[in-house]
Protein backbone atom coordinates (compact mmCIF):
# COMPACT_ATOMS: atom_id res chain seq x y z
CA UNK A 1 0.00 0.00 0.00
CA UNK A 2 1.93 2.99 -1.26
CA UNK A 3 -0.42 5.51 0.32
CA UNK A 4 0.19 4.44 3.88
CA UNK A 5 3.93 4.39 3.28
CA UNK A 6 3.70 7.98 2.10
CA UNK A 7 1.80 8.80 5.22
CA UNK A 8 4.40 7.19 7.44
CA UNK A 9 7.12 9.34 5.92
CA UNK A 10 5.02 12.44 6.35
CA UNK A 11 4.59 11.73 10.05
CA UNK A 12 8.21 12.82 10.53
CA UNK A 13 7.23 16.48 10.64
CA UNK A 14 5.56 17.45 13.94
CA UNK A 15 2.98 19.70 12.30
CA UNK A 16 1.57 16.88 10.21
CA UNK A 17 1.58 14.66 13.26
CA UNK A 18 -0.67 17.14 15.03
CA UNK A 19 -2.96 17.15 11.99
CA UNK A 20 -3.32 13.38 11.93
CA UNK A 21 -3.50 12.92 15.67
CA UNK A 22 -6.40 11.00 17.18
CA UNK A 23 -5.48 11.83 20.78
CA UNK A 24 -8.73 13.70 21.35
CA UNK A 25 -10.65 10.68 20.11
CA UNK A 26 -8.71 8.38 22.37
CA UNK A 27 -9.34 10.51 25.45
CA UNK A 28 -13.02 10.85 24.54
CA UNK A 29 -13.60 7.12 24.24
CA UNK A 30 -11.63 6.42 27.41
CA UNK A 31 -13.88 8.90 29.23
CA UNK A 32 -16.86 6.94 27.93
CA UNK A 33 -15.22 3.78 29.24
CA UNK A 34 -14.72 5.42 32.62
CA UNK A 35 -18.36 6.48 32.70
CA UNK A 36 -19.49 2.92 31.93
CA UNK A 37 -17.29 1.52 34.70
CA UNK A 38 -18.44 4.04 37.31
CA UNK A 39 -22.16 3.56 36.63
CA UNK A 40 -21.77 -0.21 36.57
CA UNK A 41 -19.91 -0.28 39.88
CA UNK A 42 -22.54 2.04 41.34
CA UNK A 43 -25.39 -0.34 40.61
CA UNK A 44 -23.30 -3.39 41.57
CA UNK A 45 -22.70 -1.75 44.95
CA UNK A 46 -26.43 -1.21 45.28
CA UNK A 47 -26.97 -4.91 44.50
CA UNK A 48 -24.46 -5.93 47.18
CA UNK A 49 -25.83 -3.53 49.77
CA UNK A 50 -29.47 -4.58 49.42
Amino acid sequence: MPKSQLKKQAVESPEVEEKDSLKGTFISVMLIGGFIIITWIGVWALYLYR
Partner: peptide, 18 residues
Protein backbone atom coordinates in the same frame (compact mmCIF):
# COMPACT_ATOMS: atom_id res chain seq x y z
CA UNK B 1 -8.08 -3.99 6.97
CA UNK B 2 -5.99 -1.87 9.28
CA UNK B 3 -6.91 -0.58 12.68
CA UNK B 4 -5.53 2.53 14.34
CA UNK B 5 -3.25 1.93 17.32
CA UNK B 6 -5.51 3.91 19.65
CA UNK B 7 -8.53 1.96 18.45
CA UNK B 8 -6.79 -1.30 19.24
CA UNK B 9 -6.02 -0.07 22.77
CA UNK B 10 -9.58 1.17 23.21
CA UNK B 11 -11.12 -2.10 22.05
CA UNK B 12 -8.77 -4.12 24.23
CA UNK B 13 -9.61 -1.92 27.20
CA UNK B 14 -13.35 -2.12 26.47
CA UNK B 15 -13.33 -5.87 25.99
CA UNK B 16 -11.27 -6.37 29.15
CA UNK B 17 -13.77 -4.25 31.09
CA UNK B 18 -16.65 -6.35 29.81
Amino acid sequence: MNMHKYEKIWLLFGTATL
